[in-house]
Design a binder for these strands. Structure first.
Lengths: 348, 348
DNA sequence: CTGAAAGCGCTTACAG
DNA sequence: CTGAAAGCGCTTACAG
């Protein structure tokens, strides 16, 4: 219990200087070792690393941030419509993948919910150097505020914002997403391959690009196969929306023997409706959908679907943003691979 | 375009000194105003606030952190079993509530996923002063590592850790949760009130305290009503687990006219099984459950349930942790109010 | 290759 | 009530 009285109060945790003292070098050298500077003697590196290990030293983030003028923090922007947002496992999965990847990186992930009353507040926060970059997750077209933001802050979008702007600017906008057209086409083609000829669709909200692209994928496959569309109803990605769309499809004049449903959540709502109307799945109606999550396995029969690797998407968003922050050249669009998962809902 | 050549490079964002200059005071005074020190002239306060507004000044978090030795960051610890974790909307809802509350506070919320290979890494991170406090979300009994952590860092648990330790220490452990016994009792009592007399249950994992408490609530109400248990099967909170438990219940010798299911997710899996066996809900079997989310509304019939106000729980966890960090006296247990939501699954 | 020194933008005793 | 000064723990030109 020696109570040393020095000029400085002892730091709570081991500090750079402490490491330097133990290693017998200056703190400059310790700093160089920590930051992987090549110009340090091997022996110095070894002694410093020993000291670090012995002391359990971890750099003080605030101090480092202050001098480097960066925060080692990235924000995940989430729209305030959180009730819906979080009801959809899709988003939870993106966040999970992102958090997981961030945990293993030097950056920490901050969840930021955009205030609806005061969106300016959130944007200020982002612009004020509180974060080194931002991830924008939004189903609807990203507001122009975010596009504006991406001029001054590294930003990665989870949905490609609409390219209303000039091409030069558009190239500066980075997004990470699946190819929605291809995903829809994969599911629809599978139905065609199973011999279905009257294929309807339940779409996502056509106000979103993802909704329109999924519709397009379905439509293109039908055209290529020389098939007529057998009905098209819009949903909102919720089970209730899927159920309502299924009702409308059944009420329509066009018979159908398959439905491409733009999300598993909607399909889970559509299934009971089909059954209630005496349509057997897959006997009378085959179903293929998108999203491989609890909604595609928690049904009878289980749903054939396209796995969008949503958790990978979250991880890739973070990885891409970090590279962007660190100055790498990043293509405008990063595509996440997708897979068809065949289950009973499309058995032939 | 006057390019001033000064000793210092101009800061990217307005700085304390800039505000001071504009307001005609010293930076000490600006700092005092920002931190709400009472000993500043009204006129000085006014001038400083004007300057702040004019410049859109926002304090640099890193600088403040460095001197205050605190980070203004709190961690939300998430177990790595994220597949299951995030499949359960319960957790997404807690996180949502927490993020929402944090967004409106001075703290930012960092999602931290506990590495299973190297849990020590996460604990180190927490211990090293990277955060001012931590929220522990875990269904299973919190590991003793976290209890240990709570001695050196403000910590709030989302599930009350088992009180194996001495009472004195236990009082230091803060938790925010619903009263699971009361919630289960509320649901079960509702079934009794509807005239059901042969009430079975599908429990959560009995390895968790929440699972055991929900069982206890069911059991107590039955005893108080003078009813015999009509079956008890353990589930794992997933739809598949609920379905399997329902099968076992049906295979048992005891007839039942109601089931208290410990989570809506399990109930959604049990429902189709009951139907498949020709049991009508609510005609033959009434169902009451816990959790008011997509799983309680995405069924036919919709489920009578106890709303656990899970998003409030997340918000309250953050609020409680912040108060703890700021030195307030916090009771060991904060209870979130609950509500019964009556729907068709328990119609009489 | 290495050290001394300055500085990142704040806060806070310490003197007025 | 207010300002000058020191210091929080790092990094990084700048000289050796």
């Amino acid at each position: 219990m020696t109570t040393q009285t020095r000029r400085k109060a002892p730091a709570l945790s081991p500090t750079l200087e402490g490491v330097a003292a133990l290693a017998g070098v200056s703190s400059s050298t310790v700093s160089r070792v920590i930051n992987g500077s090549p110009q340090v003697t091997e022996s110095a590196v070894a002694r410093v690393n020993d000291a670090i290990a012995k002391l359990g030293y971890v750099p003080n983030r605030a101090a480092r941030s202050l001098v480097r003028r960066q925060t080692q923090t990235i924000a995940m922007m989430i729209p305030e419509r959180t009730a819906e947002f979080f009801a959809d496992p899709y988003f939870a999965e993106v966040i999970q993948g992102a958090a997981m990847y961030a945990s293993s990186s030097d950056y920490s992930l901050t969840l930021l919910i955009e205030s609806e009353q005061d969106p300016e507040k959130t944007h200020q926060f982002l612009r004020r150097g509180n974060v080194d970059g931002a991830l924008i997750l939004s189903h609807h077209s990203a507001s122009s505020a975010y596009l504006e933001l991406s001029r001054t802050l590294p930003v990665v979008f989870g949905v490609r914002p609409p390219g209303e702007l000039d091409a030069a600017f558009d190239a500066e906008v980075r997004s990470v997403d699946v190819d929605n057209v291809a995903a829809a086409a994969l599911a629809t083609q599978h139905l065609v391959d199973r011999g279905r000829r009257r294929i309807a669709t339940i779409t996502g909200p056509l106000s979103t690009s993802a909704g329109r692209e999924r519709l397009q994928g379905w439509s293109e496959v039908l055209a290529a196969a020389g098939l007529e569309p057998a009905g098209c109803e819009e949903g909102d990605y919720t089970p209730a929306g899927g159920a309502a769309a299924a009702e409308r499809l059944l009420a329509g004049a066009t018979p159908f023997d398959a439905v491409f449903v733009a999300s598993a959540q909607m399909a889970s709502g559509a299934l009971p409706v089909l059954k209630a109307h005496g349509r057997r799945v897959p006997g009378d109606v085959a179903i293929a959908t998108l999203d491989n999550n609890v909604f595609s396995t928690n049904t009878v029969p289980q749903l054939t679907t396209v796995d969008l690797h949503t958790s990978d998407k979250g991880a890739t968003m973070v990885a891409t943003l970090i590279r962007l922050i660190e100055g790498a050249e990043i293509g405008a669009e990063t595509l996440i691979p997708i897979d068809l998962v065949v289950r009973d809902s499309s058995a032939s």
